[in-house]
């Protein structure tokens, strides 16, 4: 029931923000699809290029949406000064994370549907391998959740100063994940870092149509999720001991 409590709060809060919903769920995805679609179709007559770049952009957007949704529940508690009330409730940590992830699932699925419809309507993009596409979506959600949880860890350890990092972290990762270009164009040190990013394997899997690469990415994402989970447990215990949980109020 506690998962329901957190999910209800986050989803009701989001539904009340109609203007934000319009921007985040409709205008921003539309702008992204139009910009990337026009850019690629202007540069190359190859229709496959448009399909690949738009699929990659859509999936990356979905991962970022999931990551933001997971961490934003925690930030809402900071912004609304509800941290004390929230943690005075009989909430298990997993209830809190799963409740916030429910928002991530709703947001990312909506974003996925909207962007796919725009891509199809404006550029005729049709997903050819739904298995690989949805597998990548699921893997990116897991990785997005892991990064979102690490965002909570940063907030608990560092305080409100860690907020900006949560907005830019996924955009930073796009550089090394080979989302829009092959890894070979990157400097050697960045290529080395890329091997530790599950997203790199996911987008390589899409480019090469290799499900094994996706499985590697999925396994790595699960490992990161487990690490993030234990880091969050530790950070919460530490925050309770240091009084940070109360001071967020």
């Amino acid at each position: 029931m506690s998962v329901k409590a957190v999910a209800y709060r986050q989803i009701m809060h989001m539904v009340q923000q109609k203007e934000h919903l319009l921007v985040d769920w409709v205008l921003y995805p539309l702008t992204m699809v139009v910009s990337f679609g026009l850019l690629v179709s202007t540069l190359t007559p190859d229709p496959e290029a448009v399909v690949y770049v738009l699929s990659a952009a859509i999936l990356w957007r979905v991962a970022a949406t999931f990551q933001t949704s997971v961490v934003i529940g925690f930030m809402e508690d900071v912004w609304h000064e509800t941290m004390r009330q929230t943690w005075a409730m009989p909430l298990r940590l997993r209830d809190y994370v799963l409740g916030n992830s429910a928002l991530g699932l709703v947001s990312s699925l909506f974003t996925l549907c909207v962007t796919l419809v725009f891509a199809w309507a404006l550029f005729g993009v049709v997903v050819s391998d739904w298995g690989l596409f949805l597998g990548t979506y699921a893997m990116l959600c897991v990785f997005g959740a892991a990064v979102g949880i690490m965002g909570m860890v940063a907030l608990l350890l560092v305080g409100e100063g860690a907020q900006p990092a949560n907005w830019v972290i996924m955009d930073m990762m796009v550089l090394a994940s080979g989302v829009f270009y092959p890894l070979s164009v990157l400097p050697v040190p960045v290529r080395f870092v890329a091997h530790f990013l599950p997203t790199m394997y996911a987008f390589l899997a899409i480019r090469q149509g290799d499900a094994m690469l996706l499985a590697i990415g999925a396994l790595m994402s699960l490992c990161y999720l487990v690490v993030a989970w234990y880091a969050l447990k530790h950070a919460l215990r530490r925050a309770k001991a240091q009084g940070k949980l109360v001071k967020f109020h």
């Binding site: 709060r9 009701m12 009340q16 809402e76 609304h80 509800t82 004390r84 009330q85 109020h249």
Partner: peptide, 12 residues
């Protein structure tokens, strides 16, 4: 728990 200066989600 009943805290002084409690805060709630304002748009709920």
């Amino acid at each position: 728990h009943c805290f002084g200066f409690s805060c709630y989600m304002g748009n709920l």
